[in-house]
Design a protein around this nucleic acid. Sequence first.
RNA 1: GGAGAGAUGGCAGAGUGGUCGAAUGCACCGGUCUUGAAAACCGGCAAGGAUGCAAGUCCUUCCAGGGUUCGAAUCCCUGUCUCUCCGCCA
Length: 425
Amino acid sequence: MHDIKFIKKNPLVFDDSLKKRNLQPCSSKIIKIHNEYLEHLNLKQKLLEEKNSLSKSFVRKKDNVESIKKLVYELKAKIDNLTDLAELKLNELNELMMFLPNILSKNVPRGDSEKDNKIIKEHGEIKNFNFKPKNHLELAENLGLLDYKKAIKISGSRFSILKSDLAKLHRGLINFLLDNNSLEFGFEEYVVPELVKSEALEGTGQLPKFEEDLFKTNFNNLYLIPTSEVPLTNLNRESIINKKDIPLKYTTFTNCFRAEAGASGTDTKGLMREHQFGKVELVTISEPHKSESELNNMISCVENILKKLSIPYRIVELCSGDIGFSSSYTLDIEIWMPGQNKYREVSSCSNCTDFQSRRMKMRIKNFENGEIYYPHTLNGSSLAIGRLLISILENYQNEDGTIKIPPILKDYTNGLSIISNGKKI
RNA sequence: GGAGAGAUGGCAGAGUGGUCGAAUGCACCGGUCUUGAAAACCGGCAAGGAUGCAAGUCCUUCCAGGGUUCGAAUCCCUGUCUCUCCGCCA
């Protein structure tokens, strides 16, 4: 949600950001509606004041009872009418604003699609195989560790079933990632619900605009989370945080559920794009002026993982056409996938500034001077397990189709060092 | 699924029709005391909005939505959620 006062003061900044996202500028429309709302509101408040004082006078004087009743009755009718008018305008305003994306940081490069994203860093050497590297699907299927045909029988397409050593690697990775985030980078570890109310999704910005991407259940109309950014960021919704407790840094593993409505035809097989996937997430609630450095901290946390795994990666600055609804600035981290011979997104780290905190009414209070303001929220994947698995399988494959386990993961996979036909060597 | 209870400020918890935005305690903030800290004592302490240069003034909010009333945290209706007990269950 946007700050109406900011829009009124900086209509051009607001409109420029919308234009950059290829959307229609609308500050003048917003300001007009808000002024109409204020007209009704101000009049209503004056009449309410009158009505209140009449009621209070009732206690003292018991004369003129009937005339007071009559006056109040008349006032009430006017007030009701103004309440309706004001509410109408306010609803109109909110409906408009809830669909408007966050204001872009001035650092976001202009562009139409992911082709215009800017590579800002590359790290790690791409391995030269002296054979043609296989893709993860072929590798895992040959080893008997991935069975998406069974998954189709049980659940349909875009689901998968991992077996034995691959399942173990999956589990080990989760622990490895959570340890990295919590022990080395100070993110507090959580276990959170994977079903949430619509209010929580409105808070982080998935609703109302992206309903079709979500799975809705028939239990209390709860939704399956598309990312644990939703429960983590909403941990402090509608509450006031003591400035002393800032920054708040959270990490968790959850499954994520996405309808992938607009993705038909791409990455249909394997672990690349599924309706259900595991992901370890980072969320930071930050002082507004420190959110840039907190984003850097998140990025280092993710980089640390990839360095330990010796997986080549690059960092990409998302352009205005590719960046998400709630974000003001996003860096994607892409890892090398030899089977596809390209980098693919494995993490997306976003600074959502005060966009989400306004929507969920999360505030910081400085108890020394009574000041109350909105924190900045940041979220980042650290990391998407399925895609990380792909990269490990493909980068660590041997010519005979076996997979070496990255040394750092040995402690997390019961000493397993190589995956070979589902048997340890 | 059956039976009952409840929803009040950051938390706990009073308050059943008229200065109640709301006692009290804890927490928090400021101060006194102390070498420092603790304790004790003194003072402060809800949020959102409108208006104004400002001081201030006003409006709204005691789960949500309706209703009764000149007046509702308090009475009535509906909804939502939570808790306890029983049953079932990882």
